[in-house]
Design a protein around this nucleic acid. Structure first.
Lengths: 209, 209
DNA sequence: TAGATTGTTAATCGATTAACAATC
DNA sequence: TAGATTGTTAATCGATTAACAATC
């Protein structure tokens, strides 16, 4: 039941469970079985039960899972029950979109500061000069750095973030960053996603989803 | 050597190969071995060779792969050698960012029209009313629909897109869309990505990447 | 109690890695 | 030719699915 040895495949499914359970909960449903979850998620009931059992015994024989309770457990497992302090680097198209995205704030992800190449003010938001990032991190405890810069400077920014004691990087630039052990990287490679779509559009015989 | 039976794992790696090869090419490097590719991508040489051999014999014993040639082959396999016509639905934060993103245009992805709840004009771009999407698709051949709407209307939009004969949907709303067979869905679930990051930030012992 | 459904072990399936003959 | 490196088969490893005893 230790957290050790849990595979990436399992972990990547946790947010999906969380999302479906939230939508079930919004409908006012109290309990759900792995079979029912299987039907709406498209995963097998067996896999759902085994995934959850990596973290604990949240169900009850003959009953299934209590929706609210399971959401609570998943929140703790994923860590969305806590709040996180963020710095955003790169206030271009994507950076701007992420900054505006309200859902993340509601979940407890708080933007502490925004940096770009040059300092400027945009609708009451003071965007700071990137040169001041290092100092800012020295004086403020920040958990997550979002990199939404051109790929040419992404690694450089990552280095500053690591040096500043950040715990995780959410990377939107199309490069694979190298960081010291202990810092977590999660990348959103939009180019790769679009290419995957493109591949399948040209391969009508491929029905592996 | 048929395209049948190629697993999703393999296909998801193709864009990565493409990206690394482009960067090697930019450095003016002519040839590359699977061993060298292994070192920069972090994948095993064996896996790289086996992945590529699903699509053809692009290498040469004792030499390796010609960088430009392999890029050309990958372009054809992925389908980035062609151009694609896009409609964007939802011109909010993310929709706006995607519309502005220059790289995609350079690669041959062309925005034919943009739709939102109400029609309006923004910096010379005429955003059309969503009610006109169906008609637009009847009169224009469109390949890809990008959904960047609130989740409440995403499935409804997907239905209109399918009805309109679209081939692929790039979905940014946090739902799993259901479409008729033959239409390809690729979703970018930002919430799931952020949750995965969050999970690992709270699990320092987990070193499975 | 009888029916339902979990938690968990065992069986199957698929993906990755290792090895090496072929050959440039 | 000798060295390097591919393409491909076989071995290993890991993830998914099936099955079922436990039990609510």
């Amino acid at each position: 039941m230790s957290k050790q040895n849990i595979s990436l495949s399992v972990i990547k499914r946790l947010p999906k469970y969380y999302r479906y359970l939230e939508s079930i909960n919004e409908k006012g449903i109290i309990r759900v079985s792995s079979k029912e979850l299987s039907e709406i998620t498209g995963l097998t009931a067996s896999q759902i039960r085994q995934d959850l059992n990596h973290f604990g015994c949240f169900g009850q024989q003959g009953y299934g899972y209590n929706v609210k309770e399971l959401i609570g457990e998943l929140s703790k497992i994923i860590g969305v029950d806590k709040s996180y302090k963020i710095v955003l680097i790169g206030y271009g198209n994507i950076g701007h979109a992420l900054y505006q995205y309200k859902s993340f704030r509601d979940l407890g992800y708080e933007f502490e500061a925004v940096f770009d190449k040059e300092e400027f003010t945009h609708e009451e938001l003071k965007v700071q000069k990137i040169d001041d990032l290092g100092d800012f991190l020295k004086n403020n405890k920040v958990d997550i750095g979002i990199i939404a810069t051109p790929k040419t400077v992404a690694q450089e920014i990552a280095d500053i973030l690591c040096e500043g004691g950040i715990k995780g990087i959410w990377n939107f630039s199309p490069v694979d960053l190298k960081v010291k052990n202990g810092v977590v990287i999660e990348s959103v490679h939009l180019d790769e996603s679009l290419f995957t779509l493109t591949y399948f559009m040209n391969s009508p015989e491929d029905f592996i989803f």
